[in-house]
Amino acid sequence: MPLNIVVCIKQVPAPEHFSKITLDAEKNTIIRGGIPSVINPLDRHALEEGLRIRERLSGRVTALSMGPPQAREVLEEALAMGVDDAVLLCDRALAGADTLATAYSLARAIKKLGKFDIILCGNQTIDGATGQVGPQLAELLDIPHVTYANRIEFVDGSFLVVRRVIEHGYLDVNLQLPALICVLREINQFRLPTAIGIIEAASKEIKTWNCGDIEADTEYVGLGGSPTRVVGVFKHKLERRREILEGSPQEVAQKAVHRLRELGGI
């Protein structure tokens, strides 16, 4: 029976450029302008999983992203991969949100999308890397969730068995739908968009919603709706010797081993 699948995706700074990101010392917010962006890598696996579920069991896949107008790009990529619908949640009021405020906003958007069966997310982003939004979103939608998922098996239309990794091994979890699942890289190999997919994406509309459209209570969104906030930054004092050795490879090797002995490293 057809399933309604929502995949939450995020646009993040390209990792090679992380060192160029600076912090606004006055506002204590991150300045990301001018840095190339990509779709969060794990989100591609989440989109792929959604597409595979649709291929096996039929249904619709909707990609949802909360971000600035530029985040349209990741939704276009999702459409090019083959998702049916794309929604951008964009509003200045949503900026500066911590994970709880983000989860709240996404929850409101998903409520507006209507009935859903499965929500998929990447387990964490490469920028914040908290891995918190998924579980918080599930809590706000009052549905169960599983994180660190590397395998999803459908038993029948209303429940799944999800394998989730632990440090050395895994747990198998019976999961009732509707539910939210955060996926790991090893769950699948995502597809590249094809040329046809790219052209067809151009003809699909990306809906853009703001706070009013999703009937979000402004008290719970954005910087103001975030229980946590940045209260300062500082430079970490690193007390290391910072000796740089010079010479030919053999020379530095000898000097290094000698020094390591002296310092008690070996």
Binding site: L100, Q132, V133, A138, T228
Partner: peptide, 23 residues
């Protein structure tokens, strides 16, 4: 912040509507 701690903490924080900082 084990794989399980990272699963439990955010859900609890959302349930009681408080803040959570990771790692």
């Amino acid at each position: 912040a084990t794989t399980i701690g990272m699963d439990l903490a955010p859900r609890v924080a959302a349930k009681v509507k408080t803040g959570l900082t990771a790692h």
